[in-house]
Design a protein around this nucleic acid. Structure first.
Length: 98
DNA sequence: CACTTGACTATAA
DNA sequence: CTTATAGCCAAGT
């Protein structure tokens, strides 16, 4: 399995996340054939300009948005899709996409 | 090629 | 709750 295909799998999976739902880096990694959570995070951080992936629906294992440069914008997008956060900034586990 | 940096996670103390 | 360790990968320098 070529290395670049893992990224392709990651992009494909992220593109499948339904609106209003979320998933984690680790889950995506498990869905691919060999990628790791770190690889998924790296992929999200190196997304080429002009992409159409719902990157904002990918959160960390703690069901929270990882603090990074676009975290605020990410929360806004999720909020706009109807994703609610609790007092600790955590997302409802029921919104997890398999 | 080596080294660093960063949207990760599980485990232990 | 926090730190620390270890394992992990991609892209940039």
């Amino acid at each position: 399995m070529a290395r670049g295909e893992l990224l392709e799998q990651i992009y494909t999976i992220v593109a499948q996340i339904p609106e209003g739902r979320v998933t984690t880096y680790g889950r995506i990694a498990r869905m691919t054939d060999g990628a790791t959570a770190r690889a998924v995070g790296s992929a999200m951080g190196h997304l080429p300009s002009g992409h159409d992936l719902p990157w904002h629906r990918v959160i960390n294992a703690g069901l929270k948005v990882t603090e990074h440069g676009g975290a605020v914008r990410q929360r806004e997008k999720l909020r706009a899709e109807g994703v609610a956060f609790d007092a600790k900034g955590r997302v409802n586990p029921e919104l997890l996409w398999p």
